[in-house]
Structure formats: C-alpha cells, structure tokens
Design a protein around this nucleic acid. Structure first.
Lengths: 213, 213
DNA sequence: GCCTGTGAAGCTATTCACAGCT
DNA sequence: AGCTGTGAATAGCTTCACAGGC
C-alpha cells in the first residue's frame, strides 16, 4: 500500500518533475531527484517502485512516465471538490494557493460568518453565508472540507461538515477535532510548527543537529 | 533524546493542559490526555517519561507539573526572536496566529517587497522594506525566519536570511530550500497537504481507512 | 480495580549493499 | 563505470503487556 509519507513525497516529486519537464528535460536519475528534494536516492527508487515506474541504468527515468504514474495515484479520475470555511487572511491565502493549480481538485465554495462576503468571488471561488453550508456541500457533491476558522469554532464547523457529508478535512485550527471515525483529518498547526522550529534552532546552536531536507 | 514527533505532541499537550488548568482541573490521567489528543495512553506515558514527569496511579499527573516540564523543553530561557518575510494574506494570518501567544517566542520584524507597508504595525509587529532585512535581523538578534513569499522568491529569501545569521526556517513556499547544512528547516506545504487529504478521502470512500487523531 | 512506569515486542520507514544491466 | 531494482539490515516509533503501587 501507498503510505502517508510516500504520498507526501510524490506530491513533492511532481512539482520538481513538472519544473524539469518545462525546462526541456526528458529523463532524470534517482540521485538528481533525490538531491533536489532532500531525500536519499534509495528512497526515490523505492518510491518509483511503489508507483510501478521503471527506469534504465543508462538514462534513468522518463519524466513524462513518472508524472503520468504519479497522477494516477494522486489525482482522482473525476474531479474532487473542496469547501473552505473561514475567509479571513488564512482562508484567502489558501484560495490563492490553489487557484487553478490542479484541474482535478477544486475549491468550489467558501463560507464565512460574515454575511458581507456573500456572493463575492475570491480567487475564483464563490463565497456564501454560513447558513448555506449544508445545502451547498450536498448540492455540489463536496467531499473535502478546509477549516480556517478560529479554534473555538473549529469543532462546530467540523461537525457540520461531517453532517453534510464531507469525508476528509484539512484543519488549520490549533485543536484536535473529535469526529466519528472514517473521516480523514489532516492537521496543520502553525503554532506547533513554529515552536518546533524554535526548539530545533536552539538545539542547533548547542549541538549542531543537521538540517532536514 | 527528545525527537521531532515528541516535540510535536508536547506542543499539543500543552494547549490541552493549559485549557484544563483554566477550567480548574488539577490532575489528569494519561488516558484522558490521550483521548483529547488522539494518541494512545501508552504514548502519553512514554512522553511524560521523556520529559521527566511522574504521576501517581491514584491521581494521574499534576497538570501544573506537566506544564512546567513541557515549558522547560519547549521554551527558551531567554526570548527567541523570529522574522517574517512576505506580508501577504498568509503572512498576516501568521502574525495574527502568534500575536502574544508565547512570551518567549516573538515575531519581531516583518519584511515585504512592497515599500508601502514600511513602518506599519500589523498585529503588533513592525513592517520594514526588504532592503533592511540583513541589518535588522542582525541588530535584533533574530534567529528564526518565516518564509511566506511566492515559490520563486523563496530560495533567494532563504539565502539572505542565512547570510544574516538565521539558524532555523519555517518555510511556507512549496519548494524545497537548498541551504548549507546546520540550518533547521521545517516545511509547511499547503498544496501537498490538500493533495494528501484528497488522496486519503478517496481511499476512505473505497475501503474505509480510519481517521487519524 | 485502575492507574503508572517500562522492558519487550511489533510495526513502519529508511538505508545498505550488491547483483544485474547497459 | 555508473545506474536501477531489491532483499536484507537497520533505525525509529508505537503499542503490548504486565509488574508494582495506591
């Protein structure tokens, strides 16, 4: 099975490979991809194996082939839709990030408590008042939720999402959500990440721990 | 030694524990903390062991004791300063998140290419033009950098940070930075995270993989 | 009886090391 | 000579399971 860590690396490889292809490269060796992404070349070869790609000792891997196989794993056949809740600075940043990036993964609706935002279009995504969350998620067949509201509202929003039929959540609120199992939750916790950097920066100063990637 | 994963959980525990303490709780059992954070109770006990906390079978752990020991690990003795580069939506969201959250971890300066922002104060943090990056990082003894600029500028900003003396970086740009070793880099890659959620949401639908935390 | 503390076991992820190919 | 593909080894992380204490 394709594990969580592998999926993360595939997403990373894809960006690098897309770039290489755009520059006219046709093939790539495992050690090249490795040094650009900060993993080892064995790791790259293992990952290529996992997605059923095969290279040749003389040329390495065909970039187009890799991209095709990565897409087969990462992209849905039919488009997947996501809904964002919380159109503050963070929400807008997220919309900007994804705008038209992946044809098979689209943020189709955004919600906010502030009714003043209703019907505005931000980075190509239509805004709605909170109250329509349930109806629109169901009507538009949205399966992914993105939570970008303050901590105290997050649990509540998550429950509403699940009720509306959402199956996976990307949560930016710095609290663990408690939901019925069967819902995939990915947490991005900015506070935690900064504390982590602060910690390892100190260790660095003291004892010279190596950089990652 | 205290590993990366442990540090992440400690940050999480701390938030939960702060909350519990504020509600008047004095003690907590490993399984309570476990269910609130989505880890197992063995894991909690292991982590408590790692930070030198000890509980009693009848009462569990003293919350105040845990918080003190967690702070001993996560917080610096003297304040640590961070600098943010890129005051767009993402940058502002980050500033809002951290404003006064941790007395020992302060975003002391923000930089942007847009000179129109110079000398404004956003969420308590003073903005500066790009050109002063080097001087201010050195003068203010800033050791942590936060990169919230578009992908194409990130590598360049990172190099400038390192030249100015920064030792750890929190990178939001969706490309791996290549830096001299000895600099700790933590990447937060929004595109990757959303692709990951999309992937596991699909798997969920197909075969019922369990939710994490 | 229900908890903590922890050695031992089990899992997962990564790296080693080398046979085989070109 | 330098690369891929991969079994075997290693390292890292989590859970099991149970002794010991309240």
């Amino acid at each position: 099975m394709t594990t969580e860590k592998t999926i993360e690396r595939l997403s990373l490889y894809r960006r690098l490979l897309t770039d290489l292809l755009a520059r006219g490269e046709q093939t790539v060796f495992s050690h090249e991809l490795a040094s650009k992404t900060g993993v080892t070349s064995s790791q790259v070869r293992r990952d290529m194996m996992a997605i059923g790609c095969t290279g040749s000792p003389s040329r390495g891997y065909f970039i187009a082939d890799l991209l095709e196989n990565i897409a087969k794993i990462l992209d849905a056949q039919t488009p997947q839709y996501a809904a964002l809740v919380g159109i503050g600075n963070l929400g807008r940043a997220i919309l900007a990030f994804f705008q038209g990036r992946r044809p098979k993964l689209i943020i189709r609706a955004a919600f906010d408590r502030d009714p003043g935002l209703a019907d505005r279009i931000i980075h190509g995504c239509r805004c709605h008042p909170d109250s329509q969350l349930d109806a629109i998620i169901q009507k538009e067949n949205i399966q992914i939720g993105i939570i970008a509201v303050p901590a105290r509202e997050a649990q509540n929003v998550a429950l509403k999402m699940v009720t509306a039929g959402i199956k996976g959540i990307l949560n930016f609120a710095p609290i663990p959500l408690s939901l019925t199992s069967g819902i995939y939750v990915e947490n991005i916790d900015l506070t935690m990440s900064l504390e982590k950097v602060a910690y390892f920066t100190r260790q660095n100063n003291v004892q010279g721990k190596e950089s990652d990637q």
